[in-house]
């Protein structure tokens, strides 16, 4: 079984090949190269290094979000098109769960964070080892998240390159319960996208057409429109 993993949901880029439960090749980078230009060549390279052709792939796992809208869409578009044209299954994996999976061995609560700008984050709380979601993936203001986490009254490990943006705030709110993952665990990795993907039942090939990103947030124009409709109902 040969897996291709794709992760472009935020600034970091990662692609990997896993064959029969063994990592063959993985590329991880955190540089400001647009995924639109960089992701497809990265897939080509990781396949070439593994000595494989696109036709050798059996299944694709992609980070389905949340994250940068455009970043998520690039990974999903590449994954969808490859999976459809190769007629192989496509598995979607939460970008937050894949990031939390970097710290799987931490026997406590794991809080992955992606910056969503204007003091907002995409986040969740996963139980270490089992990776069970205790707080589902969502979009939140950092202050609301920290209030919620303080109520858990337990040690929490924060993961992600964006944790640094909020670290002072986190320590202020959670004190001794706040732990920060080592920097080597901060980048989302396509091998973890694949590993999390191996735990779910493979969807049918026909399902690929209906695969969509998990934005965890409706578009701003749509939110405003819905608000207007509600106001009209009240009038």
């Amino acid at each position: 079984m040969i897996w291709l993993g794709i992760e472009t949901a935020n600034t970091p880029l990662s692609v990997a090949i896993v064959r029969d439960g063994k990592v063959v090749a993985e590329l991880v980078q955190n540089i400001k190269l647009t995924h639109s230009a960089g992701a497809m060549p990265a897939i080509e390279e990781v396949l070439a290094r593994a000595g494989l052709k696109a036709g050798d792939l059996d299944v694709i796992a992609v980070s389905e979000g949340p994250g940068s809208y455009t970043g998520v869409r690039i990974g999903v578009t590449l994954a969808k098109t490859l999976a459809w044209t190769l007629q192989i299954p496509l598995v979607g994996v939460s970008s937050l769960k894949a990031l939390a999976a970097n710290a799987t061995l931490y026997n406590g609560l794991i809080c992955p964070i992606f910056d969503a700008r204007r003091d907002n984050v995409y986040t969740a709380v996963y139980q270490g080892v089992t990776l069970e979601a205790l707080v589902e993936d969502h979009h939140a203001h950092i202050a609301d998240l920290l209030e919620r986490l303080r109520a858990l009254d337990a040690p929490i490990l924060f993961v992600g390159t964006d944790v640094g943006l909020f670290w002072d705030n986190i320590v202020e709110e959670l004190g001794d319960n706040a732990f920060r993952a080592p920097f080597s665990l901060d980048l989302p990795r396509a091998t973890e996208v694949i590993r999390v993907g191996t735990k779910v039942e493979l969807p049918s090939v026909e399902a690929t057409h209906h695969f969509v990103p998990q934005y965890k947030r409706i578009a701003e124009a749509e939110a405003n429109w819905l608000k207007e409709q509600k106001e009209k109902e009240h009038e």
Partner: peptide
């Protein structure tokens, strides 16, 4: 953002085939 969808689909399709 709209262009990117067609372009990435085209690249993936071209590469795979």
């Amino acid at each position: 953002g709209a262009l990117l969808i067609g372009i990435n689909a085209a690249k993936a399709f071209a590469f795979a085939n």
